[in-house]
Design a protein around this nucleic acid. Structure first.
Length: 669
DNA sequence: AGTTATTTAAACAACT
DNA sequence: TAGTTGTTTAAATAAC
């Protein structure tokens, strides 16, 4: 609050655009992510909010590129975390810096020529990146787990066969075999580790950017390998005695060799955990905890503990609470052969993923190269910026956690979200508004997503305000309540607080559809549905092109589900909003009845009617009514006053609203 | 190219 | 006086 006001006041001084730009940038920085400041660019852009908006300015290809890059970056990050147990990006404020650090990396990874200023800005938007990371990580985790299981099975089979063989053979032979196997594995792992660590350093360790260049050298061999086991261990048993015993160096390579033996043999391998300090002197041990915890759940939680169960690969043991889990960890996943082996497996998994990542990366490059060569290409993703963008990248990038739609690729934001995301700027594209996405249903479906992801919703302020109002039983909200709704429903509005409130007020005043009703207590805002529908541009729901695009997008496989969902959504009514609107109340607040709604929805080109933005005083009859009843308004809510008072009982209304939105004509007409 | 809808910024007035 | 709420105006954009 304070910040906002401050920023606003500050801005007041300069009226020029330039001034605005820079200033706003500051504001943003203050409010949400420092990085954003990118301001520089002129244009609406302005930063923060701009971040999202900028999307609209990107070409499909650019967007694709950006998104993919982000995905890759996130994936790398994830791999790092998996490998080391460290989670770099923190959700917490304190961690913000960490996330910010990552940004540069991603940027660096992208070829400059491919980036537009807007992209850069977006990339630099910490909140968004953070959100992306979070989501991506969650999804990646799922994938990883699945993959891990497979890998683990394979590995176990191998080990079993070896062991069996070993029974018949002299131990030594077995040892050798295993050793060879392990060594091989280790070699690969080592390489991988180094690579990962390098990445980690680059991205996570802001302190030594320079190291990026020659990380391999800087990294002590021993360190790499050891990290994993140690970390795992460390996590499992935080202050364990084991630490003391350590012999770090042994761990890795040699350790691995020894461990190999250890497989069959008893635990001798108690490695480690020591503080393996990274060259940077980073307290890896500590960081991992905080970070991991942050990215997974609440601070107090454990990275390997989530949803009441142990997330140790292949474990899934249910634990009542953290304490129990810790016990479980210490007992079941102590530093022993099995755990060590599992760590190795995990490393292998990571490696596999890394390889896959490389492939995907390559593919991306090819795609980008192709697209950049001829951006105009309608083929791949039909021209539609929106759709194309959406499908183009693995939406995996940012997907709402909630949506579980797509089985294949966990990721995917619901159709809408995808739309929103890609559109990026969201609001700016009313497309969202008109085009197939009924806000209510979208919100319902992606509620959690928007709530947690710092992604700007693809809805216009007007539609959001309306939604906020309609979601209440009374269908009326005070300005402050509207603010609260925004912040409650959208993470984006929690962070980018500087300007949107002004926008909300502006919209309330600007659009005739928002009617201010005087109350004893103050004033509340209601929605004049008729007006709202009037101003709405014709929907494109049925647009063949749109459908076409979407379909084309489907080909991308991963997205299928989401798109289908989106399509489905657009085609039938959802009852998304839990809102408790009652018809009665609706009546009171929204003078228009269903009929009204139904008809107008589509039409109204906006000719004259809407154009005159503002008739201040006298409004239309119904509006007037509303306005005139200051006291009534209040009463309306509860009791059920004259007009159409509300009877909360009826649950239909909200739905009506939704329906109206979604299917303009159908329901009523 | 012109229009419309949105968003953002900002100035101001009226209240609290 | 400072902050909030509302109104307006203006500029920049994107979509039509």
């Amino acid at each position: 609050m304070m910040v906002e006001s401050a920023s606003e006041t500050i801005r007041s001084a300069p009226s020029g655009q330039n001034g605005v730009g820079s200033i706003s940038g500051q504001a943003d920085g203050g409010g949400g992510g420092a990085g954003a400041a990118g301001a520089g660019g002129g244009g609406t852009g302005r930063d923060s909010a701009a971040g999202a908006d900028s999307n609209g300015e990107m070409s499909p290809a650019e967007l694709l590129h950006f998104q993919q890059q982000q995905a890759l970056q996130v994936a790398r990050q994830f791999l790092l975390q998996q490998a080391s147990g460290l989670s770099s990006p923190g959700n917490n404020d304190s961690k913000q810096s960490a996330s910010a650090v990552q940004v540069p990396v991603s940027v660096a990874m992208m070829s400059p020529q491919m980036l537009t200023p807007q992209q850069m800005q977006q990339i630099l938007s910490p909140p968004q990146l953070q959100a992306l990371l979070q989501q991506q990580q969650a999804l990646m985790l799922q994938q990883l787990q699945e993959y891990y299981k497979k890998q683990q099975e394979q590995l176990h089979l191998q080990l079993l066969t070896q062991q069996q063989a070993g029974k018949q053979q002299p131990k030594e032979a077995l040892g050798n075999k295993q050793l060879a196997f392990q060594q091989q594995l280790l070699q690969m792992q080592q390489l991988q580790q180094q690579h990962l660590l390098n990445l980690q350093r680059q991205g996570l360790v802001s302190l030594q950017p320079s190291q990026a260049s020659g990380p391999l050298q800087t990294l002590p061999q021993a360190v790499c390998p050891t990290d994993l086991p140690q970390l795992w261990k460390g996590e499992g048993a935080p202050g364990q005695p084991a630490e003391d015993s350590v012999k770090q160096e042994g761990l890795d390579l040699t350790g691995s060799a020894t461990t190999a033996t250890s497989f069959a043999a008893p635990p001798k391998v108690s490695p480690p955990l020591s503080h393996h300090t990274l060259p940077n002197g980073q307290p890896t041990v500590l960081t991992p905890r905080r970070d991991s915890s942050s990215h997974e759940e609440t601070p107090g939680s454990h990275p390997l503990y989530g949803h009441g169960e142990c997330k140790w690969p292949g474990c899934e043991t249910l634990c009542e609470d953290l304490g129990q889990f810790i016990k479980h960890l210490n007992t079941e996943h102590a530093l022993d052969d099995r755990s060590t082996a599992q760590c190795r497996v995990q490393m292998q998994v990571v490696q596999q993923l890394e390889i896959q990542l490389a492939k995907e990366s390559e593919r991306l490059q090819a795609m980008m190269a192709h697209l950049h060569m001829r951006p105009s290409e309608p083929k791949p993703f039909s021209q539609p910026v929106t759709v194309s963008a959406a499908d183009s990248f693995p939406d995996g990038l940012v997907h709402p956690p909630t949506s579980a739609a797509a089985p294949v690729t966990p990721l995917r934001p619901p159709g809408l979200s995808s739309a929103s995301l890609h559109s990026g700027g969201p609001a700016r594209r009313r497309s969202s508004d008109k085009f197939c996405s009924p806000i209510s249903s979208e919100l319902a479906q992606n509620h959690e997503f928007y709530k947690n992801a710092d992604v700007r919703p693809p809805f216009t302020y007007a539609s959001l305000i309306r939604q906020a109002i309609l979601e209440t039983p009374d269908r009326q909200l005070t300005l402050n309540e509207i603010y609260n709704w925004f912040t409650r429903m959208f993470a984006y509005f929690r962070r980018n607080t500087a300007t949107w409130k002004n926008a909300v007020r502006h919209n309330l005043s600007l659009h005739k559809c928002f009617v201010r009703v005087e109350n004893v207590k103050g004033a509340v805002w209601t929605v004049d549905e008729r007006e709202y529908q009037k101003r709405r541009p014709p929907k494109m729901t049925g647009s063949p092109t749109l459908v076409k695009n979407m379909i084309s997008g489907l080909s991308y496989g991963a997205l299928n589900a989401s798109y289908q969902a989106a399509l489905a959504e657009s085609s039938f009514p959802l009852l998304s909003s839990p809102g408790v609107l009652n018809p009665g109340s609706a009546g009171s607040l929204l003078p228009l009845s269903h009929d009204e709604v139904g008809a107008p929805v589509e039409p109204l080109p906006s000719n004259g009617s809407s154009s005159p933005p503002r008739l201040s005083p006298p409004q239309y009859s119904h509006q007037v009514q509303v306005k005139e009843e200051p006291a009534e308004a209040e009463e309306d809510r509860r009791p059920g006053p004259p007009l159409g008072p509300a009877n909360p009982s009826t649950a239909g209304p909200p739905e009506d609203r939704d329906l109206e939105e979604e299917l303009p004509g159908e329901e009523l007409s």
